[in-house]
Every structure is written in C-alpha cells, then in structure tokens.
Simulated scan of single mutants.
Amino acid sequence: MKYRIVKYIGLAGTLLVGGCSDWLDVDPKSQIKQEVLFESEAGFRDALTGIYTVMVRTGMYGGNETMVFLDMVGQVYTEVSINYMDALEYDYEATKVEECIDAIWRGNYNAIANCNHILANIDEQKDVFSSGVYEAVKAEAMALRGFLHFDLLRGFAPSYVRGADKAAIPYVEEVTNKPVAQLTVAGVIDKVIGDVETARQLIREVDPIGPAYDSYTESGYETEDYIQGDGFWLYRKSRLNYYGMTALLARVYLYKGDKTKALEYAKEVIDSKKFSLLEESQLVKDKTWGYLCSENEYLSSLYVYDMEEGRSDVYFG
C-alpha cells in the first residue's frame, strides 16, 4: 500500500523536541541538554532507549504502523470506527487519514533524527564506554536508521519491482534542518543495506544473542536487574539485536528481488539454532499455532507496556 505525500514536512528533529521529554526529563521542569547527555555511557544508553520509546507510540509501531492504519488500508478489517472509514476507502486527503499518515512520516523521521544525534556524537566519546557497549549502541542506532527508512520507503514510494529508478524518499544521515533530496527506490535500498550490514558486523562479536556466544537465555532475570544498573545486555530480544539485523537484511533483499542473498541471511538465522522456530507441520496440526508463533517466532521486538489494555482491547474488543 502506498500513500501520496500530500504536503512537505520538514525533516528537522532533535533529541529535545518532538515529544521526547518522557525519557529526557530530569524533573518535571527541566531537560538534559545534548552536550550533557552525551558525556557518559549512561547518556548514550538513555538516548538509544529513547529511540525505542519514540517507536512504540500509538502514531507509530504501537498503533498506526501495525494494528491501526496499515491494517485498515490493507483491508484486514471488515469494519472500523466511523472516524476511520475513509482509510478503508483510500481517501488519503480525509482529515483523520491525513493525521495518521503525518504521524507515520513525522514519527519515523523524528526517530531517525535521534539515531543521527547518537551517531554524530558517539565516535568522539568512544572512551567513555565499557567493553562492547560502544559497538552495541552505535550498531543499534545505525540499524534502526535503516529499518525506519525501509518502512518509509515501503509506504511512500513505488515498489522496487515496479520502480527501482523512480524518486522515493530522503535518506537522512545527519542532523540537519535543511531539506534532504529524494533518492531513488534503489538508492534508498542500497543505503538501508549499507547501514544494516555495517551495524551487523559492528555488533557481531559483542551481542549476547550473536554468533560469538554459544547460547542465549533470558530466564532468571528480575525486572529490577533490567531497569537499573548494568541491565543493558539483558532482554536482547526486545532490541534490534544481531539476528534481528540479519533477518532484516533477508527481508530487504527479498523486497529487492535478490532471493539468493535473502536465503543466505535467512539461513544464518535458522542455522544459528538460537530460536525455537516452528516447523510447517506444527502450523498445520496444532490449533494453538497463533500462540506458539507469538512465543517462538520472534527474533527481536518493540516492547509496548500497555499493549493489551491500551491498544489491543481498543481495536479487538
């Protein structure tokens, strides 16, 4: 599904605007300045967490880019709230539909701007990091930038098969308030692959859920360990980890039509034996396959704290 861009939207974004105050607040009346935030490893880690926080908002992957707007234009629902009927009819200039499209466009580029803030500062501050954290933070920020651009491409540009040489979207790689020129569809795909592959190699040897470790488990961890202290390496499935990046590359190459490369990356994930992926026979025979998939089939994820009460119950009540 493609949506026409009906208005020019500035691509400027900073760590202190666009609703990021939830994760930058020191107290209700003050915010951390950028130069202070990036003085320590903890600041970079907080900034990275902030990107995920932006991504799970209702206007993005906590709603519009999953169960709400995209599912509506994908005709997943037979009926929706009267406020969203225009989405089922592809009336992209209706007020409510425009709001959804703008939320996706602005939200993704805001998250991309936050990725770029980290990437613009991290090399100068490499000495503040403990072992492996520099590589992980930089890799995740770079891979997330690729992921966010890829989803914008799929939504706002022709498909690779139909228009590889056609104008697509801007690929923003620096913190700027100036317009960034559109690349072609093929140009964006090349940038996505470049970012994600570079990130994947950077994190390969340090990610606990990567090939450098024989096994990975999250059992036995307490919530307190994750929230406080040295919990950065816990719950790697709730981040864009090494195998999440690898699977993303498989997906991007499949979108490009390069099935050989897609298979290569997909097999690396499967052959790692780190995920209890389902066999086709289980999907056919087991009536609880939906539950099994949710438990076993994901490689990395975004965590939404109020997913059931705040989201699922609203749309599937």
Rank of each mutant, 00 (worst) to 15 (best):
I5N: 06
V6S: 15
L16R: 15
G18K: 00
C20F: 15
D22T: 09
K33H: 15
K33E: 14
E39F: 09
A42T: 01
F44D: 11
A47H: 02
L48K: 14
Y52P: 04
R57E: 06
G59F: 00
M60N: 02
T66K: 10
V76L: 14
I82G: 09
E89A: 14
E89I: 12
D102M: 09
N110Y: 02
I112G: 12
G132L: 03
Y134F: 12
A139H: 04
E140K: 07
A141Y: 12
H149M: 11
F150C: 01
L153M: 03
D165N: 14
I169Q: 12
Y171D: 04
V175Y: 06
P179Q: 10
Q182G: 14
Q182N: 15
A199M: 11
D207M: 12
P211N: 03
D214W: 03
S215I: 11
Y221W: 14
Y235E: 04
R239D: 07
Y243K: 10
L254W: 10
Y255S: 03
E264N: 05
E268K: 10
V269P: 05
K274H: 04
S276M: 11
V284P: 07
C293N: 12
Y298S: 09
Y298P: 10
Y298Q: 03
L299K: 07
L302A: 09
L302C: 12
G310H: 14
R311G: 04
S312E: 07
Y315F: 07
F316R: 10
